[in-house]
Design a protein around this nucleic acid. Structure first.
Lengths: 155, 155
DNA sequence: TCTCCGGACGAAACAAACTTGCAAAACAGA
DNA sequence: TCTGTTTTGCAAGTTTGTTTCGTCCGGAGA
């Protein structure tokens, strides 16, 4: 279904703070609270809104290390790729996993309490997987900007 | 402040769905609704909970291309790095920006409607910045797993 | 051991937000 | 223009969030 300007503006607000009262959203977009509520409900049912989540500070939880990993595989058959996707997706330390084009095949974002945990992960997922040709590690020193939002334009 | 097992369990729930009623959370963790409410309030004030956001499907918004970029800079003085951080953080297309160690200095996650928009971004931020030595692009073909959560353990 | 004190809890009362039914307005196609 | 469809706003009803208040538990000091 097509999203109109109201929907996009509502999404822009919810991506910043989904605890904003519908009445407040309504005032911002010039719509009544029930109208806002119905649009949110519809977008949720249609999958435009995938989830509503709290963003937690990793440092507060003692899970302070964020690591990017580029993974290159040996065999890129559909079956092998699917197997790798499943394996990466199943690991709780892997917060984000993308299958990409370029000089690598996968890019992972890993969050762990300490480097030792990352080493354990590499042994388990990379050295223990003989389809992994090579992987390259980048340790985050500063999370300058962290968002999962989608830029909303055209309203 | 130290988080106990109740806090961690509450966080685990809120990271999945922060619209869960406090009463329901209370039943899950064996606490009354007001107790849950007080803990959430405290964790929000302390910054453990950074934000409450809706996760939107980029495809639904027509912003379907996700791109990873490794950026290497020429000069790594503190002033230059801070300038780069500010510039990257200010770009709305850049959803995530990390300052990292390894073979690159920054890793960016860019979300744009089309490749042409990414090209415009490269001209503006990379070719237009004479401190950028080199950048490498990875286009996501499949967002296998997308999360900003933090693994919660020990409860 | 006893008492005091601070912190956290649960029950209940209260306030705010969400949800639904319904009639009217806006809109698209014939 | 007319009609059918869709969406809106209002108001009532329901659920959820918040505050209050009295109680309990655990530690510090006499």
């Amino acid at each position: 279904m097509r999203l109109d300007a109201f929907d996009r503006k509502i999404l822009a607000i919810l991506q910043k703070d989904n605890t904003t009262p519908q009445r407040t959203i309504g005032e911002a977009v010039n719509l009544s609270a029930p109208a806002v509520q119905r649009r949110i409900k519809r977008m949720t049912e249609e999958g435009v809104i995938r989830a509503n989540v709290a963003v937690v500070d990793p440092v507060a939880l003692g899970q302070s290390i964020t690591i990017f990993v580029e993974v290159e595989v040996i065999s890129e058959t559909a079956a092998q790729i699917e197997a790798a996707k499943r394996e990466f997706a199943a690991a709780p330390e892997i917060q984000q996993c993308y299958y990409v084009t370029g000089e690598a095949d996968f890019i992972l974002v890993v969050v762990v309490p300490a480097m030792a945990d990352y080493e354990a992960l590499t042994r388990r997922l990379f050295f223990g997987n003989n389809n992994v040709k090579r992987f390259r590690t980048f340790v985050a020193m500063d999370r300058v900007k962290v968002g999962l939002g989608v830029p909303v334009e055209g309203y």
